[in-house]
Design a protein around this nucleic acid. Sequence first.
DNA 1: ACCTGAACACCGTTCAAGT
DNA 2: ACCTGAACACCGTTCAAGT
Lengths: 215, 215
Amino acid sequence: MAVRGSASKETVKPKPLDRDRIVSAALRLVRREGIARLTMRRLARELDAGAMSLYRHIADRDDLLLAMLDHVAQSIQVPAPQADETAEIMAVMKAFHDTFRTDPWLVGVLLNEGQASLHILPLVERIFSALYRLGLEGEQVIEVYLLLIHYSYGESLSFETAGKRKHLLETFGVAAADRYPASAAAMSAARGWQYREFQPNIARILKAITPRQTV
Amino acid sequence: MAVRGSASKETVKPKPLDRDRIVSAALRLVRREGIARLTMRRLARELDAGAMSLYRHIADRDDLLLAMLDHVAQSIQVPAPQADETAEIMAVMKAFHDTFRTDPWLVGVLLNEGQASLHILPLVERIFSALYRLGLEGEQVIEVYLLLIHYSYGESLSFETAGKRKHLLETFGVAAADRYPASAAAMSAARGWQYREFQPNIARILKAITPRQTV
DNA sequence: ACCTGAACACCGTTCAAGT
DNA sequence: ACCTGAACACCGTTCAAGT
């Protein structure tokens, strides 16, 4: 048994706390058990520290969440630039999507903490730039940007909570098929469906803003 | 001063608790102070009851949230049917959007509680029906449905937390305009913008699924 | 300088006890 | 039958005290 402060050279001897060690441990915890289980006390226990020692290195829980956000944002795999504008936007959105799949709690942090990491600026720039090159103007650019972003927020949150969600089919019940035939048809088409709506739906959005061929 | 159980005929004499009174009080509280302030103890105080009396009428907090969801779903203003399919979908989505504007906390409940109210089935049916009439098939129907729903989730959650969010422009800082010209242009186009992305964006989505004129 | 236990003001919920 | 206070097992955070 490891005794705190024992003379034996244990590898578990308490390393000093620092911001990086706290953020890393928090990320590990959140990925293993979900954001709801990330409490200051639990995190401290994970670090073999007193619950209050964390406050030497982080201001409060929000500060921790923002530090975690920043850490993840820095690690985003930046996709290669694409000549074609829609391919460029698809690539950047896929990078965001992949990030939200690994860390779905990020969306909640982005919404609740009210600020993003500065590390995503280059990626955001690539989207705006492509939208301008596609010929969008004025408020259209913001609107379409928000369509892309808000859709990916909703999709990610939905995926995050998909586990505890009853399939619509169950909620409906079998009897409802008579009264709601289109819903029933859609539900049965969705059976065994691979939940890969994201890419086709981004493509749909981009199709809507691409000027139609007028020959 | 009203004395509990006094003989005087006060209007504040404790009415008996029941499910409806609890749900109504919870809705009032949540609309006034936000979902975070809806705690069992606070709600009980609002009803001049002991904190634990609520549990005679509701199973737990989740049960209460679902009851609130159901109440709101029943009160949705059902829009008149539209002959044109895209107009029909626009109308139904507007009804959802209006509902989420009044009660943004609904989205969180829908995501976290993992079930919707049966009262929205007629509205969902109208969307699926219109999508089929537009010629969509198989998984396309589900994909586009989820595009519409997930976008409106993201938009609503974003609106809910818009107050505490710093405008991207502030996060960027002025200096960043050199490195990120497209972002800066978009941000300044967004200045004074009316945050009415929803309708145009639903229209964009529908445009993408409408077959192009091939003359 | 760095860490921490006790304490404060909260949570949701259980349970035995009151009327 | 209906209500409730005390209690349990949690939260985030403050603050005075320890080394």
